[in-house]
């Protein structure tokens, strides 16, 4: 960290300290009461997951005994048995598809489908968002205003009732239950990523492109060799938040890709199947395993994710 950043941080700390000292007793009491409420709310959000974690290490018998004793599963397991996690990831399977294409899929397989779907769709969406945003930000052409207006209208005006028609259309063109079909449903190039990248490209001076043009670069060359490499941090941020959205999405893969259950879709089927056997610790393990990748991504890119959510939705 360089000296100027250290100095700025020290000044900010000093200002915050001064502000705290200026507070009246009533204000201090109010803040501590609010702090207490915030802690309680945070605990209420964490307790369900701690409860799942504790009980995921128990055997079915131990969990049932806890329920009978009335402790609601709020006890440490006698032994931290990780066999539920193995069973959750590999052992337990659900049947997908019908007829000859029917097969059993475990959570590991669902992870594979999720990774495949998320990686490919994120790549395509980020690329098309960047391309459309770049063209709309840097080129002037007939119909540009019309396209922009239509995109904004489509974002603002909610029209419901088109789902059955879209489902029928996808079946008619033979893209239902195929990976390209889901790409088509997801990837538009005119969504949240477009707005984010449009603002970014508007901020890049055109002089870079002019210098490249003098060196003989084509329009494609400028975009792929200059503009995209200059936008790597923004593209990465967009990719992370887009990928989280696709990873968590339930409806689209459920409707358009039933033969390849992703984690979000398959988990619903898995938990329904497990509930029939009343093996709740196994179900808890499935749920926790399913959120591990998201938690890892969030832990690594927490600041990027939060700052982009703020940047994307800050103005009306």
């Amino acid at each position: 960290m360089d000296a100027s950043k250290r100095e700025l941080r020290a000044r900010l700390k000093k200002v915050a300290r001064e502000q705290r000292e200026k507070r009246t007793t009533v204000q201090k009491v109010v803040l501590w009461v609010v702090f207490g409420i915030f802690v309680l709310y945070a605990v209420s959000l964490l307790i369900p997951f701690l409860w799942l974690l504790l009980n995921s290490f128990k055997t079915r018998l131990e969990f049932s005994a806890g329920v009978v004793s009335g402790n609601g599963g709020l006890s440490f397991p006698k032994e931290f048995d990780i066999s539920n996690y193995y069973e959750a990831l590999i052992g337990f399977r659900v049947r997908v598809g019908s007829g000859e294409s029917a097969r059993n899929v475990n959570l590991l397989g669902m992870f594979g489908y999720s990774i495949l779907l998320t990686a490919t769709t994120t790549f395509l969406e980020v690329f098309f968002s960047a391309a459309t945003a770049y063209i709309m930000a840097k080129y002037n052409f007939p119909g540009k205003g019309f396209i922009f207006a239509m995109v904004l209208i489509s974002m603002v005006v909610p029209i419901v009732g088109s789902l059955p028609v879209m489902y029928r259309f996808m079946g008619k063109i033979g893209l239902r239950n195929t990976l390209p079909g889901v790409w088509f449903v997801y990837v538009s190039g005119f969504g949240f990523g477009f707005l984010l990248m449009n603002a970014h490209f508007k901020g890049i001076p055109w002089t870079y492109a002019e210098a490249a043009q003098i060196d003989g670069a084509s329009h494609f060359g400028i975009f792929f060799r200059i503009m995209l490499p200059m936008s790597v941090p923004q593209l990465l941020s967009l990719a992370i938040i887009t990928a989280i959205g696709y990873w968590n999405d339930y409806a689209t893969p459920k409707i358009y890709l039933p033969s390849m259950p992703t984690v979000a879709v398959g988990l619903d089927s898995l938990t329904k199947e497990i509930q029939k056997t009343s093996d709740y610790p196994l179900m808890f393990s499935c749920m926790l395993v399913a959120i591990v990748p998201i938690l890892v991504v969030f832990a690594c890119f927490q600041k990027v994710i939060i700052s982009n959510v703020v940047a994307g939705g800050i103005k009306g």
Partner: peptide, 17 residues
Amino acid sequence: VIYFLPSILPVVVLTMA
């Protein structure tokens, strides 16, 4: 961070938890 965390978890896990 704690308040934001639920918004990035799958709805199926969140509601079931």
